[in-house]
């Protein structure tokens, strides 16, 4: 097989894997948009906040220690324990549920029946607030996130492809784990929404708020539920991206990677988030591989949006989005 073809296959595979990582972020957006029509600008910051909390709990860091020390002249930094990853993840998930409850009580409750743009603006405020809160609670230094996920080249794929083609493909173990996690997440979300009482209630609210309210479904509870699930998805995204780059404030910018995925896959479809991620991931990597050297490289950030816009020309609602027809 020609070298260029082998390289293109390797780039495609890595693009698909990168796309899964984008999908993990996009899923959180889809969940909230589907259930409440809110484009949650704070989703990337939720991932950052979840990852900061996870590392803080795991390492026994005292939250708000900088503030406590400044006020009381103490020198407190750590509780002196380290928690097992599973315990820290479970506790962080609980924190995210608490966060969802607070967001509903303090923000969303007061904005019922407001225009979507008002809710969107509220999530912008929420994003900045959470970023500041994360900074004050856990500090702005870069933290190493280690929950035992393997990283680096997958030796088996390297060896098998080398024996077959004379060139070993590079696939990152972390990306493979991310693919399995994304699959498990999509499966769980599908089972939850199809076969559980609350899942059906969530779908009912997504279909028609007024009708759902008329049959006794609590909109406020559903909002807490969906923000909790989105918080959990943010935690998963935070773990994957945090393992890759360390937990730092730029983690919130992963939301920028999810936007073209949402544009392409549709804002209301969970499978759309996955398929959109795969297309964006592979498309941007292949474009960089073939066209990058000709036009100076660093094409991925903008090409992802170009690709999404191209799809929008033909399907304005995205590949899997619902076509909205408003009759006058």
């Amino acid at each position: 097989m020609p070298d260029q073809l082998l390289y293109a296959i390797e780039v495609s595979l890595n693009g698909l894997m990168a796309g899964i990582m984008y999908s993990l972020v996009a899923l959180g957006f889809v969940l909230i948009f589907k259930a409440s029509g809110i484009f949650n600008y704070a989703q990337g910051v939720l991932a950052l906040f979840a990852a900061l909390t996870l590392v803080g709990l795991q390492q026994g860091q005292i939250p708000f220690s900088h503030v406590i020390n400044a006020i009381f002249g103490t020198d407190l930094h750590s509780f002196g324990w380290t928690l097992p990853s599973v315990v820290a993840i479970a506790l962080t998930a609980l924190v995210m549920v608490g966060m969802a409850w607070l967001i509903e009580r303090l923000v969303l409750k007061h904005l019922v029946n407001q225009e979507p743009i008002i809710l969107f603006m509220a999530t912008i405020g929420l994003a900045y607030f959470l970023e500041g809160l994360g900074d004050v609670m856990w500090g702005a230094d870069i933290k190493k996130l280690d929950v035992g996920l393997p990283q680096g080249i997958n030796e088996t794929i390297d060896a098998v492809t080398f024996n077959a083609f004379g060139y070993g493909f590079f696939i990152d173990n972390l990306d493979i784990i991310a693919a399995f996690v994304a699959a498990a997440l999509v499966l769980s979300l599908t089972l939850f929404s199809q076969y559980t009482k609350y899942g059906r209630a969530l779908r009912a609210v997504a279909d028609d708020h007024q009708a759902a309210l008329s049959v006794g479904i609590s909109l406020r509870f559903i909002w807490v539920l969906v923000w909790s699930i989105a918080g959990f998805v943010a935690l998963v995204a935070g773990i994957m991206w945090g393992s890759k780059s360390g937990v730092q404030f730029s983690l919130s910018l992963i939301a920028l990677k999810a936007l073209p995925v949402l544009m392409l896959g549709g804002f209301t479809s969970i499978p759309g988030a996955i398929v959109g991620g795969l297309i964006i991931g592979m498309g941007e990597k292949l474009f960089e591989f073939f066209a990058g050297p000709l036009i100076g490289g660093a094409t991925e950030n903008w090409f992802a949006y170009v690709l999404a816009l191209l799809f929008l020309v033909f399907r304005p609602q995205g590949l899997f989005g619902e076509k909205i027809i408003e009759r006058v």
């Binding site: 390289y7 390797e10 780039v11 890595n14 693009g15 894997m17 990168a18 990582m21 590079f170 990152d172 991206w241 890759k244 780059s245 730029s250 983690l251 910018l253 992963i254 990677k257 990597k285 960089e288 591989f289 990058g292 100076g296 490289g297 660093a298 991925e300 950030n301």
Partner: peptide
């Protein structure tokens, strides 16, 4: 010369190029 767009959280393409 291999550019990376800011902020640079995703650099797979660049490092695959280095590997090649």
């Amino acid at each position: 010369e291999i550019p990376i767009d800011s902020p640079g959280q995703e650099q797979k393409s660049q490092w695959l190029q280095v590997r090649r």
